[in-house]
Write a protein that binds this DNA or RNA. Sequence first.
DNA 1: TTGAAAGCGCTACCAA
DNA 2: TTGGTAGCGCTTTCAA
Lengths: 327, 327
Amino acid sequence: MTTIKEVAKLAGVSVATVSRALNNSGYVSEEARKKVESAVKELNFYPNEVARSLYQKKSKLIGLLLPDIANPFFPLIAKGVEDGVNQRGYSLLLGNVEDDLEKEKDYLKIFAQNNIAGVISAVQGDIKDLQNMPFVLLDRVESDQNFSVHSDDYTGGMMAAEAIVSRDPKEIVIMVGPKEVPSSAARLAGNQKVLKDHQLDYQIFQTSSFKFELAEQTAEQFFDTYPNVDSVIASNDVYAIAVMKEALKRGRRIPEDVQIIGYDDMPFSRMMYPGLATIAQPAYEIGYRGAKLLCDILEKGFVEVSRIQLPVILKIRESVRKKDEDE
Amino acid sequence: MTTIKEVAKLAGVSVATVSRALNNSGYVSEEARKKVESAVKELNFYPNEVARSLYQKKSKLIGLLLPDIANPFFPLIAKGVEDGVNQRGYSLLLGNVEDDLEKEKDYLKIFAQNNIAGVISAVQGDIKDLQNMPFVLLDRVESDQNFSVHSDDYTGGMMAAEAIVSRDPKEIVIMVGPKEVPSSAARLAGNQKVLKDHQLDYQIFQTSSFKFELAEQTAEQFFDTYPNVDSVIASNDVYAIAVMKEALKRGRRIPEDVQIIGYDDMPFSRMMYPGLATIAQPAYEIGYRGAKLLCDILEKGFVEVSRIQLPVILKIRESVRKKDEDE
DNA sequence: TTGAAAGCGCTACCAA
DNA sequence: TTGGTAGCGCTTTCAA
């Protein structure tokens, strides 16, 4: 490993001058700069971030907390976050938390031990655990003073319900995600607003998790509970796909006998057959904007907008019937 | 941030003693240890990894290089790697490379700047770029002296072909992944061995990428090129699913008119309808074993086995027809 | 068994 | 405009 000392020696200047030249801080004569530059090139020198970080008490690392990287919604978020922080010179320390509060705490400790510059979190944990680290929350809407990026769940819920309402529903069941997840509640509220406005009856099927592994058995329970359901507003695309499969297995046609709308628009949703109608959340964008927001906080110390809400988009695909007026 | 100095002061000993007590290195009297422990507890002290890492010239971080985290095969690998390294006290620095050689180099530099302990890579880049960092390669079989974990692609290719052969194929097309990817070649060799042994004709459809975004248009081209195909050996599950969708769109029944077998067994493959028959690669296990292998290298300095090959499993699902003998 | 002190690579202060 | 130097928090000699 080449150090600043060796560069200084080769350039015939002091380490202080090299440091100044490298960081464009303080006075460096044109001549000295030239000498440093060529020494840096010759030795293929790049500064050790660990030493920097020790002195600054702040590294170029950002901690990323994810609930479950195997859930196909989160890799996209991660990609957005990564692109965003990279552009500003930061890298990511990965923390896949698995809905485990202990694991989350462990990671926050590790983050602190590594002089992390900030945290981007998409998990539901306790904000207080974040201590004094700068942070941005993704896909969570809790208290009002938070720095966060999320999409418009209430409107999304309304759009999903409207898509169903306008397609001749007979028996509507809303599949609701875990109660603790704020976005589930907002979506449900949006669903209900629309259904009530149209004076339509509906049932609620509460799920306790978004976990991939539970989707199939949940779908079975779902149809056991509501065998005659004809219109499903699913909690997310993973569960919607499981419901679709279960419906087809039970010999029900989609969308003729059962129509389904999901939530998220995962990459796979459009590759289903029939294609899954859904509310598209801009997952990559959520991550990307979250990254930018955090970087702004870190660099400027303040931000104009601290809560970013992104729009959702209705994606009509073949898993829902044709609209009433189209018929 | 609490430092070792404050702990020393509170405990009434020197920082050297605190350090020794924390690391169980050198002599520490029982009495001193007690005092240190209670001071640590009282101050809620935890050591700064950055300072440690600066002195040791080696951090507790491991760099993870992935080709594309949005490809559903890799989050599972990442999860395995993460669990594996966590158990040994390491954390992950994420490097999503996007099949971009420059980006890979950038990440390796960042890894070096952060005194990374080692690298786990699932990308196809140049090994020499890894310089002197200890590394483990996943899912790659290149030269013989490498540290690597991969699954048995040749056998997997044979299994896929056998599954088709025993199911009354009429017109077989093998969809082959990118030429540069060693595992594609091995799978193809396995396919061909079996087909030749059975003296069956087949066509080869070469793809240039594993990229998710290209799957749908590739599937279209596939059917344009081979409109009468009745048995498809796909390069992976993503492309198999795209082929399934395209077949259904064209009014061909699965598996009666077209039968398909994939490769990987992504979580979604079993949630398709019909379920996608495939060769299951133990993605999580590949990551986990890779992590263990690297940790062994780092801690012991040597390993008994440096190349780990994991078995693959044939998963028969409804996307292939019934076996000849079953009829 | 202990503590003083050097040093990991870098930045920033201060004096020249 | 420059260089000497202290110090970031920790580990590890080495002498006591």
